[in-house]
Design a protein around this nucleic acid. Structure first.
Length: 125
DNA sequence: ATTCTGACTTGCT
DNA sequence: AAGCAAGCCAGAA
C-alpha cells in the first residue's frame, strides 16, 4: 500500500482521544480512501507507532491476544466496556465509546488528507 | 489474469 | 450468541 495511506491512517489514529475508539472502517471512511481491511493491514504493520488499542473492529473487539493487552489500557483510560462472563474478554461498547470528530477535528483530518495527497472529499467517479 | 490471504464488515440463520 | 457467506480492498505468488 502507499506510504501516504499508512501515514494518513496513523495520523488519524493519533487524533483519537483517550477513552474513545474508531473502527477500522471508520478510519477508511474518514480518509475517503481504502477500506477496513487496508486500515487493518496498516495497524498490523505499524500499529505499534500509535495508540493501537483505540483502533478496533466494528463490533468492539480485537483479535484475541490483542484484546487481552488492550483491556488494561481500556480500564486505565476509562473506555466504556461491555462486561460478559467472568473470565471471557469484555467488548468495547461502541455506542458510547465511538469517537465523533468535531469541526476542528475534521479540519485536521482534511489537513492530513492534503499532506498525504490522498483522494479529495467524497466524490465518486 | 487468477488465486489466496488478511488487526475487516454486514446481513442472515 | 455464534457461524457463515458474500462483499470488500490490496498485496503477494
Amino acid at each position: 500500500m502507499r506510504r501516504e495511506f499508512v501515514d494518513a491512517v496513523l495520523a488519524v489514529a493519533a487524533l483519537i482521544p483517550a477513552g474513545r475508539v474508531l473502527s477500522y472502517g471508520d478510519i477508511a471512511e474518514l480518509l475517503g480512501s481504502g477500506g477496513a481491511r487496508q486500515v487493518g493491514r496498516v495497524m498490523s504493520l505499524h500499529g505499534g507507532a500509535v495508540a493501537w488499542w483505540r483502533v478496533i473492529r466494528a463490533d468492539g473487539t480485537l483479535p484475541n491476544e490483542l484484546m487481552d493487552r488492550a483491556v488494561r489500557r481500556y480500564q486505565r483510560e476509562l473506555t466504556p466496556l461491555m462486561i460478559r462472563e467472568a473470565g471471557s474478554a469484555p467488548k468495547v461498547k461502541m455506542q458510547s465509546a465511538r469517537w465523533f470528530p468535531d469541526d476542528d477535528d475534521f479540519d485536521r483530518i482534511e489537513e492530513i488528507r492534503l499532506k498525504t495527497s490522498l483522494p479529495a472529499d467524497g466524490m465518486e467517479p
